[in-house]
């Protein structure tokens, strides 16, 4: 059974009288433990698709199910709760809160749980260990390199052990070496921790790390 099921999904933006379709009638299945890469030119709707899967945007038509739960039917409130448990999001520009340390940034999703402070600490330290930054727990984002920031962002994405990791161009702002480190880390998350990953990228080297590559172009998804 697929972990992620997308059925007849379409997204159309309406600007005044103008109808701007991003994509229409998309269908996609991702099974648990899969590492799927989504490629396509700029403006093809990759990020929009990612946002829809994360419940950050509403589709015009169609349904999205994750682990049987229909994301597209949830209220804003339920979506927030669902996201905190089931989705880990990795951004291109890391999006760490500059006023929080690496530790505090990673702890953010855990604040939404009922874990005690001690339990939260254990989870955060484990996540830091996984991304190889245990010694940078007290560092602020400005004290970290781009690659380290992205690894902290990955730790934040995995700390609550989500069902699905969504990564939007995670290497797009990194130098070649840091990009490779981040991709290796993501591959490890998939291989060792069986994390299901949907990665959006322009980078063929990044795409090569996935199990399968799909292309989204002119509103059509091809595998």
């Amino acid at each position: 059974m697929a972990l992620l099921e997308i059925r007849d999904l379409s997204k159309v933006y309406q600007r005044d009288a103008q109808r701007i379709p991003v994509f229409e009638g998309i269908n996609l299945n991702i099974v648990a433990g899969e590492f799927l890469v989504l490629m396509g030119p700029s403006g093809s709707g990759k990020t929009t698709l990612l946002n829809l899967v994360a419940g950050l945007d509403e589709p015009t038509t169609g349904t999205i199910r994750v682990s049987g739960a229909e994301v597209t039917a949830m209220s804003r409130r339920d979506l927030a709760a669902w996201r905190s448990h089931h989705v880990g999001f990795i951004f291109q520009l890391y999006n760490l809160l500059p006023v929080l340390t690496a530790y505090q940034n990673i702890e953010l999703p855990l604040l939404l749980t009922h874990l005690s402070k001690q339990d939260r600490r254990e989870h955060v330290m484990t996540a830091l260990e996984v991304v190889g930054l245990s010694d940078r727990a007290d560092h602020y984002p400005r004290q970290l390199s781009g690659g380290q920031e992205q690894r902290v962002a990955i730790a934040r994405a995995i700390v609550s052990d989500p069902t699905l990791i969504l990564a939007d161009e995670p290497t797009g702002d990194l130098d070649a070496q840091s990009a490779q480190d981040v991709l290796t880390l993501m591959q490890r998350l998939n291989d060792e921790y069986n994390k299901t990953i949907l990665l959006v990228t322009h980078d063929q080297r990044a795409a090569d790390r996935g199990h399968a590559i799909m292309h989204l172009d002119k509103g059509v998804l091809t595998g």
Partner: peptide, 16 residues
């Protein structure tokens, strides 16, 4: 604004 969007992505609810 961007940080609020990130927090929402992490699962922070509107009410929170």
């Amino acid at each position: 604004t961007s940080e609020v969007a990130v927090l929402k992505t992490l699962g922070f609810s509107d009410r929170l």
